[in-house]
């Protein structure tokens, strides 16, 4: 265990923490601003990676896949927020989406259960059946009003878990279940050697990305009107509304931003962790650990939390491999027991 060992391990821990910052900061912002515990956040990460893979397959450009995947997932997040997490407006669109989803499932289930009814899986009959089922469902659901989720934590959790399942199955159907990998440009697969220590360039890149995004986020939060509105909403949403801040717009912006960051993490992490089914639920507890340790709603907290989790995970595995499953959760329990709002959180 010479100096070199400690340097390499610290570097690895920091680079892993950089990745965790990308997924954790979005989660933290969403909770801080909207008081929403978003369990679909892991799915955004995974979808970011998958969409990037498709972009790379299609255009061959890795650089292009970064913004495209992140923006696409931001749109998905936005739609989810508008339609299901907020209850005002868009009733027709929401009911329509639900009816379509349920209708298609009913049509598929009928065709699987009684194939003779539609003469095999012929798509015309299937479409007609689906349309009828959708209309029927629309008729049904438009008669029932939804009950807003608002700030009920348990309902948020179950609702977003439900979406996480839907996203997971959809990813499986769209991209298949193979273990895939994003290959960044060859330049990134090199290593630089500093004083006999190999530093893989890709890890350097991850750190650089996280720092750049961290600074950009900080600038947005501190120097722009939108940032000021966000901060005011985190502190006291009611008061913010009182002084004329459009908290509705703020929450829309933040949810999209959170999804954007998670997806960006997915593309960057995809070259480092791979892209495969189940990655979503593997990343989710890590993201939560970051947010819990750092405190919800605090960017600085997310940065510290990400570093702490990255380093704890890395040194825990390297030094005490026997108990490596606890090096993450045990500190989490202790911190929560001592300071339930996390290191930098405010109640």
């Amino acid at each position: 265990m010479n100096t070199q060992f400690w340097v390499v391990q610290a570097f690895n821990g920091v680079s892993y923490g950089a990745l965790l910052f990308l997924i954790g900061s979005g989660l933290s912002l969403i909770f801080g601003v909207m008081r929403i515990v978003n369990l679909s956040h892991g799915a955004y990460f995974l979808w970011g990676g998958y969409i990037a893979l498709s972009v790379i397959n299609f255009t061959g450009s890795w650089a292009l896949s970064l913004p495209v995947a992140a923006l696409a997932v931001a749109l998905i997040g936005l739609a989810m927020e508008r339609l299901f997490l907020r209850s005002e407006g868009l009733t027709v669109l929401r009911t329509g989406t639900i009816a379509l989803g349920v209708g298609v499932l009913i049509a598929l289930a009928i065709s699987a259960k009684w194939p003779h009814l539609i003469g095999g899986a012929h798509w015309i009959q299937l479409t007609v059946l689906g349309a009828i089922a959708t209309l029927a469902m629309y008729g049904l659901f438009s008669r029932i009003s939804i009950v807003p989720v608002d700030t009920d934590v348990l309902r948020q959790v179950l609702l977003t878990v439900g979406f996480a399942f839907l996203f997971q199955q959809a990813a499986l159907d769209i991209w298949g279940g193979n273990n895939m990998d994003i290959n960044p440009p060859p330049a990134f697969t090199q290593s630089i050697v500093v004083g006999g220590v190999y530093l893989p360039l890709y890890r350097v890149f991850m750190i650089a990305m996280a720092v750049a995004i961290g600074i950009a986020l900080w600038l947005v939060m501190e120097k722009t009107r939108m940032g000021a509105a966000v901060r005011a909403t985190v502190d006291d949403a009611q008061m913010a509304r009182g002084v004329g801040i459009d908290t509705n717009k703020v929450s829309m912006f933040i949810f999209a931003l959170g999804a954007f960051l998670a997806a960006l993490g997915g593309v960057i992490g995809g070259a480092f962790l791979g892209i495969y089914p189940g990655l979503d639920f593997e990343m989710l507890p890590l993201a939560f650990a970051v947010v819990i340790i750092g405190g919800m709603g605090s960017l600085g907290g997310a940065a510290i939390g990400a570093l702490a989790v990255g380093l704890a995970d890395n040194f825990g595995k390297a030094l005490f491999p026997e108990v490596s499953y606890f090096t993450l959760y045990a500190p989490m329990v202790l911190i929560l027991a001592i300071k339930p709002t996390g290191l930098f959180g405010r109640e």
């Binding site: 690895n12 821990g13 595995k317």
Partner: peptide
Amino acid sequence: PPLGTKDFGPFIPT
């Protein structure tokens, strides 16, 4: 390394 490890950073230097 635990099953499911993708970051081998902690193990390779040892």
